[in-house]
């Protein structure tokens, strides 16, 4: 008898990005990963660019490659990513230590889940992230000077 072949139906990265009708926590999960990768990329670039000082190369000063407006926008994106990642991270620490998920209950339809229990915390940290971002925008637009 011939060996039975099977199709691997693992969603892969598509499983992060979509493929279903997901809830807001799923999108927070995706954004947390993407902002984490973005901040890591920034950190690597930042390390390389600043280390060029030893060769007297200053890419971020007047006339330097990174002194263009697009990189200023990029810097703001890093602030936005940091704001989301940091505040959502606080929520995740609290949730993963079991502080905002509630106690086990008898499941009676319509089911109430821990997702609903921690939802106010999600809203609160997103409001805090937004406030942080507004302060960042105030600085970014040059209003602080």
């Amino acid at each position: 008898m011939a060996a039975i072949t099977r199709h691997n139906n693992r969603l892969g990265v598509w499983g992060w990005l979509g493929g279903g009708r997901w809830g807001i926590e799923r999108y927070a999960y995706i954004l947390h990963r993407l902002t984490g990768l973005g901040i890591l990329l920034y950190l690597l670039m930042h390390t390389v660019v600043t280390s060029l000082r030893v060769r007297n190369i200053y890419l971020w000063t007047e006339g330097g490659f990174f002194h263009q407006p697009i990189f200023r926008l990029g810097e703001f994106c890093v602030v936005a990513a940091f704001a989301f990642h940091a505040f959502n991270g606080i929520r995740l620490v609290l949730v993963e230590l079991g502080f905002a998920v509630g106690k086990p209950i008898e499941p009676i339809y319509p089911y109430k889940t821990s997702v609903g229990v921690q939802r106010p915390l999600l809203i609160a940290v997103m409001v805090l992230a937004l406030l942080f971002l507004l302060v960042g925008a105030y600085n970014f637009l040059g209003l602080a000077r």
Binding site: G23, Y29, T113
Partner: peptide, 9 residues
Amino acid sequence: CHYAGECSR
């Protein structure tokens, strides 16, 4: 697990 919450939903 990083609490996407889908399993519960």
